[in-house]
Design a binder for these strands. Structure first.
Lengths: 170, 170
DNA sequence: ATGTTCATGTAAGGCGTTACATGATTCA
DNA sequence: TGAATCATGTAACGCCTTACATGAACAT
């Protein structure tokens, strides 16, 4: 259901757009919040049009279809935002690897794992830092996303220090 | 694939266990890292047994089946931990709501949304604080999980302060 | 002419959620 | 006897990923 909401939110924020545009926006502005590729977005827009949440406008150059949010779509969006209790479901592969770390007897191996996690967080942080302020629309989510990644990075640094201390007790 | 890994990790850490046990462990120790209910776990264990990663032992009382990790299972687990580049895929409903906040013109409405997010993070933090040290097996993941939740909570507090300032400019 | 970007889709298969369904054991 | 807990599963449906497939327009 949240994919719909994300699409409605983008349409509401940036105005009419094609599936292609929305896929780009996803990558550049919602990336740290929700993920979806064009193969998920195109069919979903068709369903949303069938449900009256968006309207497909006349095709333009290169088969381009422009979608616009409807009043009904805006209503659904606002209702979700105002009423929906956000689920705390989490599936984090870095955290799963962190969970499994004690299985590695060799501290050097554990260090390698954490170094890889650290590199991933770092790359992600750089990616977020390059995001355009973008009319500052996504500012709240961006500050949350950045903080979360920085937290992951800090955890990695601390854990590395800890593991290195254990490796060389003296 | 990660569900398998999580199950192999638990079996490796706590020894032979039933699907029921594993579902409980999931809830009490992997909760902030990965989520899965018994309806996902039971069929997965059957598949894993077919793939030779675990062995189902004789049935006990009340139809209980005990699973043990095999050498092949341990190999897969260690390989994943050592080689797998963790995916950064994230789908966070709180963050999606944060993203959409600027759509609300009324600051009071925005405040309500953030207050609900804050309450959810707070509840989650209390839940984590009640977790048993549990032989401290999940210690690294727990510290990461706690830090992540605290970050979300801090974001909510800051955002509330910011929104309240905007509401009453004087 | 060739490569890149724009633009759209389908299909198969796996992962995840919710609802449904059953029955034994233990404790009050 | 009745309620709670232990213990297992199936089915339907929806969400997500990966791979496949097509073609127009534009820049070099």
């Amino acid at each position: 259901m949240s994919l719909r909401i994300a699409l409605l939110g983008l349409l509401s924020a940036v105005g009419p757009a094609s599936g292609y545009d929305l896929a780009k926006k996803f990558e550049h502005s919602l990336n740290h919040v929700w993920q979806a590729g064009h193969t998920q977005i195109y069919p979903e827009l068709v369903k949303m049009a069938a449900d009256g949440l968006v309207e497909a406008e006349a095709e333009g150059a290169r088969g381009r279809k422009t979608y616009t949010i409807t009043a009904e779509g805006k209503r659904e969006l606002h209702e979700w935002l105002a009423e929906h209790d956000p689920s705390m479901t989490i599936r984090s592969e870095p955290a799963l690897q962190a969970f499994l770390l004690p299985l590695l007897d060799d501290p050097d191996q554990a260090i390698k794992v954490v170094e890889r996690i650290r590199a991933r967080y770092l790359a992600r942080l750089e990616q977020l830092d390059c995001l355009p302020a973008e009319g500052s629309f996504g500012r709240y989510a961006l500050s949350l996303g950045r903080a979360q990644v920085r937290t992951g990075l800090a955890w990695a640094e601390e854990t590395l220090a800890d593991l290195r201390k254990r490796r060389t007790p003296q």
